[in-house]
Amino acid sequence: MSTESTTPRDDTSSRFDRIDRSRVALYAVLLGMVAFYLAPLESGFMTAFKTTDGFRATTPFAPPPAGEFTLGAWQLAFDRLSTGLVNSAMMAIPATILSAFFGSIAAYGLTNLSWRGQIGVLALFVAGVFIPYQAVLVPLTQFWSFVDLGTRIPLAFVDDYQGLINLSITHTAYGIPICTVLFRAYYATIDEEMIEAARLDGASAATIYRRIILPLSVPIFAVTLIYQFTQVWNDLLFAIVLVSDPSNRVVTVALNQLQGSFVQQYNLQMAGAFIAALPTLIVYVLFGEQFAKGVAGET
């Protein structure tokens, strides 16, 4: 670093001292930041393993005292969240995949094909990114009560999961604009001559998408899937407003209900929070490597 250039004296030992001191300071600051950011997580994690008496008796970040360690909170949280976990997965996985897929197609059409008026359409997509959830709540509920999938499609499945289907479709639609923008940034880096070469080779626009663009999109799909899955999984607002049937309750709503009305069971809430967050962590681990490539913009 600059340390070397600022010490013209040929005094090697003091130079090393200096580097060491700056290193020590750097690591100290970094450690402090790690502690600052991880403290809430650590506290939550410790609390989840304590009995009710345990968390009353100790500071939040201290490990469970002897005799106050329990897995009971985890067990109870899992029991109360399990339906919500399954419901969330049923809703979030299709919504994530569909919005990524539609976003990819839209971005291909708006980036690698040229046609009249595409800038205007792109502007609509970009505007879609910025629509606040709150602004569409009332129209959305009116829309879904008008559509009323359960009566229009007389299938037991649709009737049972109407709330989840509505929620899934809503998230898909709401996710398309941001997915399109993400994909577009990536597709803009694809060599235009390559697509022209494919056109000269006789490929149609659909074939080019299927055989050239899609196979090259793996890294950006990872980015979009992670981002979109986290968004959809963590959403509470749409879930509260659009789902009324308790059997269709998603995990964020269930987690919210772990909050007792008389006594705050912090251990239960903390364990529940970790359980509810686990799937997003799994998704990060699964797509992490591709995610890094996608963020780095490799084609």
């Binding site: 060599d191 001559e193 390559m194 022209e196 070469a197 494919a198 056109r199 000269l200 080779d201 006789g202 490929a203 149609s204 055989r211 050239i212 196979p215 090259l216 084609t299």
Partner: peptide, 29 residues
């Protein structure tokens, strides 16, 4: 359209399909 003209083009950037082997690149057309 370019596909109907029965013309082949060599580009300055070569424009090879990076996810395909050389064999697949040549077979594509």
């Amino acid at each position: 359209g370019p596909a109907e003209r029965d013309i082949a083009m060599v580009f300055q950037s070569y424009a090879l399909y990076p996810h395909m082997t050389v064999r697949e690149n040549m077979r594509f057309g």
